[in-house]
Design a binder for these strands. Structure first.
Lengths: 215, 215
DNA sequence: ACCTGAACACCGTTCAAGT
DNA sequence: ACCTGAACACCGTTCAAGT
């Protein structure tokens, strides 16, 4: 477990119980969102967030222990949206053949990568950096479950944990390829077949393994 | 081509032609290496680098236009080592069957991820951030060529550019899975078979494509 | 009890002054 | 021509002073 030592407190300082507090947190996140969308990470300073939110820096620090905590909160919010989208796709392709279902997931990833704002791109990078210090486990599990449910019928005979692992691998594989393509300027229609090949190839390899040593 | 606008000058300010200059650059990089190894990215400040290198900050800025340029230089140096290792492996498995060859590449990646210093981990993260502003193209091409040479015999009938793409995909896929496993604490022997499955599955999917529509 | 914002510590970068 | 390091601008974070 590398990189987990000395983890600074990154979570929100206190759960905003009162309405006013909740509102304040909302203002802060809204301000951060607007700044990120306009100027990216370079423009995001705590003083600017406070100014745009219409409060003082001191107040900001009452709700977030440091700057990263603001970014983490935004990432969590974004990830919730991603998890919901994945669940929606999973529901839609419940009875579709595997290649169709996988294609739907891949297209969702492509959409997320190619049709999105500076904001989302900036958050994506921070997510990778912060992932070493904090776990975005809850949303990760929702995504895993949706993918696992989708591929399970095709992997009959595989241990449940193996299906979960396959779902995680598939998720990572698709996301890595799509992210990298987007970052290096490979056009969407050029990367799509390659991602599909990787995803379906991986699943086919899993099936071959089941066939060769069934349980 | 996202993220390439406003690219600040990140390359070394001047090629150190004289011996003394070359020595200075060497001192700077050595100091940076030592600091990164000891304290990670958080400890890397230009003033500290200068102090450890035994020069003044001003001199440092004569050879590197900014802090990132130092990190980029270190990354390039590291990548040269990686490219050499890949080439060595490729030469070793030249006549081995495909699964053996792929396993050798995967083991190289596993070794790089699991048996390395704080320094390498820190550089890895910076590489992903800086990749948006600068291309580490030369070493990338060397790696691509080695992998492409290795898989080409198994992909007879595929267009040359398609083989290169497959090599890039394979590289990315292996590296992403291994990096992620290392970062989340998945033990090496648990991730190994999954990476092999992904890599070989992808290649098998490529071969299936060739068979279904030969040229 | 909570908000304010000047102040602190620190960092990347510059540039007038030296040699 | 090249090096030096104080100084500048700026940023994250704190805390004494207010209400």
């Amino acid at each position: 477990m590398r990189g987990r030592r000395n983890a600074p407190p990154i979570l929100p300082r206190k759960a905003p119980r009162q309405d006013r507090s909740r509102e304040l947190v909302e203002w802060i996140l809204e301000a951060a969102t607007r700044i990120l969308a306009a100027d990216g990470l370079a423009g995001l300073t705590t003083n600017r967030v406070a100014a745009v939110a219409g409060i003082s820096v001191g107040s900001l620090y009452q709700y977030f222990p440091n700057k990263d905590a603001i970014v983490v909160a935004l990432i969590e919010r974004t990830q919730r949206g991603v998890a919901e989208a994945v669940e929606a796709v999973a529901a839609q392709v419940r009875d579709a053949p595997l290649p169709t279902a996988i294609a739907a997931f891949v297209d969702l990833a492509l959409h997320a990568q190619y049709d999105r704002s500076t904001l989302a791109v900036a958050l994506d990078h921070e997510e990778q950096r912060l992932a070493l210090h904090i776990e975005f486990a809850a949303e990760q599990r929702r995504i895993r479950r949706s993918v696992a449910d989708t591929i399970r019928p095709s992997l009959r005979g595989l241990a449940p944990e193996a299906v979960d692992e396959a779902a995680d691998d598939l998720h990572l594989l698709v996301r890595s390829m799509v992210d990298h393509a987007g970052a290096t300027g490979v056009p969407r229609e050029r990367i799509r077949p390659r991602v599909l090949r990787a995803a379906l190839g991986y699943l086919e390899a899993c099936r071959a393994e089941v066939r060769s040593c069934p349980r």
